[in-house]
Amino acid sequence: MRELALHILDIAENSISANADEIKIIVEEDLRSDVLRIIIQDNGKGMDAETLAKITDPFITSRKTRNVGLGIPFFKAAAEACKGAFTIQSALAKGTTVKTVFKHSHIDRMPLGDIRSTLITLILGTPDIHWIFEYRYNESCFLFDDQPIKETLDGISLTEPVVMKYIREMISSGILKARQKGSLEVIK
């Protein structure tokens, strides 16, 4: 994977497979403390302590088509390669939370990449899941919650061209504004 946004997509796919109906993604870029933090939190079926202890082992996977799972080990390695850390918490029937921290300025840190496409893929591809996205840039914050949109649409598909455009623009401008506002704070 060449972008953190692709890792986010991959980890969120695990949440979807775990039958979560609410998934929250938090991306936090704090240049003052030189940290990039990514949190993916779901209310899916979770794992027991035994499975959790082995989850970063590439030869553990819940899938039946193949016996290796590389998503989590890849993400963990990406964080550890740049003075970061990876943690995963889980409880049966409660859900799973994956947290990774990166040193923002580390030369080996992957770029965040196309987070917008990752979100669009998740939101449009799994209309039954309630998606919450929080993007923080220093003090600025952009919060996206797809629930009010779905309520307003009331049965109209998210893949209607005009609706897609609406969601894409909402996310793009939200991230951009948070970045602009947050950058000014640093200059001050």
């Binding site: 009010p148 949109i149 307003t152 649409l153 009331d154 109209i156 598909s157 209607e160 005009v162 609706v163 455009k165 609406y166 623009e169 909402m170 401008s173």
Partner: peptide, 17 residues
Amino acid sequence: MPSVKSLDDLKKIREEA
């Protein structure tokens, strides 16, 4: 088509759809 971002605009989109 004008660019849209408020939920009111979304309601209009819904009716057309």
